[in-house]
Structure formats: structure tokens, C-alpha cells
């Protein structure tokens, strides 16, 4: 039970770690790191479910009749691209925020915003 679902345990742990970082940390870069970990756990989840017991890599060749499911791999390739775009945009925003506010700590930014009002 514990070992059979080994991949899924990793997925759950990574997911919670990433999610916790996003919620708990005030540093904008750390938040994005957390978000990436969170997304990566979903990638592992998709890849794990594509595995067919005893199946090989999905490349057509003679004498092999059992293949792993290639579709989730393709899906995750797309999701990785999306993840990179998100991370890049998030980091770019962090740079702009640093330029505008002089800080990347959530608390300080909120404080400066409250002063403006």
C-alpha cells in the first residue's frame, strides 16, 4: 500500500509543500518558487498515472505489445510550457515591483500602499 503508491505520496507531499510556501511566505520570489513546486507535483501526478505495469516506452517496435500511455506525457509537455510562462511572468512582475516599491516583501508593499491611500 505504502510502497505501491510511492509516486502518489511524493505528489501529495510536494503539492502540500508548494501550496504552503505560496500561502505562508511573504517574499514574492519564494511565493513563485512555491507555485512552481505546486505545479511540478501535478506534472509528476500525470506522468505517474501514464505508467502501465510492464509496459515500455511508447515507441512502436516488433515484439512488444504493451506500451505506457503516451497521452499524459503530451499533456504535461503543454502544462510545463504553461508553467514556465507563468513563472517567467511572475518573476518579471517581481522585478517591476522591486523597481516601483523598492521591496519584494509582501508586508512592506502593503504598508506602502496603505500610506498612499
Amino acid at each position: 500500500m505504502l510502497m505501491g503508491l510511492y509516486n502518489y505520496w511524493i505528489v501529495v507531499v510536494l503539492m502540500m509543500v508548494g501550496f504552503y510556501i505560496v500561502i505562508a511566505h511573504g517574499n514574492l520570489i519564494k511565493k513563485i518558487v512555491g507555485l512552481s513546486i505546486f505545479q511540478t507535483s501535478v506534472f509528476i501526478f500525470y506522468i505517474s498515472m501514464a505508467k502501465v505495469d510492464g509496459g515500455t516506452a511508447p515507441i512502436l517496435s516488433d515484439g512488444i505489445s504493451k506500451y505506457s500511455n503516451p497521452l499524459p506525457h503530451v499533456l504535461i509537455l503543454t502544462a510545463i510550457v504553461v508553467g514556465i510562462a507563468t513563472t517567467a511572468l511572475g518573476l518579471a512582475l517581481a522585478v517591476r515591483i522591486k523597481e516601483a516599491y523598492g521591496s519584494i516583501e509582501e508586508e512592506e508593499i502593503q504598508k506602502k500602499d496603505n500610506l498612499d491611500c
Binding site: 507555485l35 505545479q39 501535478v42 501526478f45 500525470y46 511572475g90 517581481a94 516601483a100
Partner: peptide, 27 residues
């Protein structure tokens, strides 16, 4: 306004969490 940056960042975090949740569900 510089607050646009901060608003966009917050939206990015929340929106990505939402989209990833949908991705998990679809998976």
C-alpha cells in the same frame, strides 16, 4: 499606478492556483 503591478501579481498567484486545481481535477 504602481499598485497595478501588485494587483497583477496577486491575481497571478490566485489565478494559477485556480488553474492548477482545475488541472488536478481533469487529471
Amino acid at each position: 499606478d504602481r499598485r497595478a503591478l501588485w494587483a497583477a501579481y496577486q491575481y497571478l498567484i490566485m489565478g494559477t492556483i485556480g488553474a492548477t486545481f482545475i488541472l488536478i481535477g481533469i487529471g
